[in-house]
């Protein structure tokens, strides 16, 4: 896949942008390129940060910007469907939908029953497009059309950690108590960020996720 744009976000960070849209094909390419660079690191490389449709490469003064562009461009040419690392494992995330404080309002705004929100949200397998916003926050897609809602006009000041939320065609999980503008439809007992774990983030870009409804009792018993 050719990139549509290359630009600097810092003297030592270049972004390679592949498309101006959110698409699974593009994101697969971004993450394949990240894995390829990680597996074949060059002198001066610090780290690669994947986003929906772009990869940002951070480097130090051992290498200059033009050398990075040339190296990454060569790597990009070498990427083929054979080098693609697709993770077929599906990670199940338990969600107590009864604890989703916005689930009633979401259901009424979408003109469907609460049970249908749960059924729709748990039916799909979602791709983790990227991790950001806060440590461990997964941006996952794609939501069924029947669940798409614009984000809230006024963000909630304190979204509880573990909140499973939706906005646009995305679903995500808040790892910490933070402000947030997404609609909260449930809560997971899983810790999305744990500094002692390797990796510290429960999910990684490129992984597949499916939600499983659990009761409050099951939530409370979860260890």
């Amino acid at each position: 896949m050719e990139y549509s744009r290359i630009y600097s976000i810092h003297d030592q960070a270049i972004t390679f942008e592949f498309a101006d849209e959110i698409s699974e094909v593009v994101n697969i390419h971004v993450i394949d390129l990240k894995h390829y660079i990680d597996a074949n690191p060059f002198k001066g490389l610090i780290e690669c940060v994947p986003a929906y449709s772009s990869l940002t490469v951070y480097f130090n003064t051992d290498i200059n910007k033009n050398e990075v562009i040339e190296l990454v461009s060569n790597y990009n040419l070498k990427l083929t469907s054979q080098t693609s690392i697709q993770n077929s494992n599906i990670i199940t995330i338990p969600v107590c939908y009864e604890m989703g404080e916005d689930i009633e309002s979401v259901a009424s705004r979408l003109n469907i029953k609460k049970e249908e929100v749960i059924q729709l949200h748990t039916a799909n397998i979602y791709r983790v497009y990227m991790i950001g916003f806060t440590p461990g926050f997964p941006y996952m897609g794609t939501l069924p059309k029947a669940l798409t809602l614009p984000r809230k006009d006024t963000p909630l000041l304190n979204v509880p950690a573990g909140s499973v939320a939706i906005a646009g065609n995305q679903t995500g999980i808040y790892p910490f108590n933070t402000p947030g503008g997404w609609h909260i439809i449930g809560r997971t007992p899983i810790k999305m960020f744990e500094q002692k774990n390797t990796p510290c983030s429960f999910l990684k870009p490129g992984e597949s996720v499916q939600f499983q409804p659990i009761s409050i009792e099951a939530f409370n018993q979860y260890k």
Binding site: K34, I46, E47, C48, V49, P50, Y58, I131, G132, F133, T134, P135, G136, F137, F193, P199, C200, S201, K204, P205
Partner: peptide, 10 residues
């Protein structure tokens, strides 16, 4: 803290 931005760590 370098090397953890892919997990959203500043």
């Amino acid at each position: 803290r370098w090397g953890y931005q892919e997990f959203g760590i500043p």
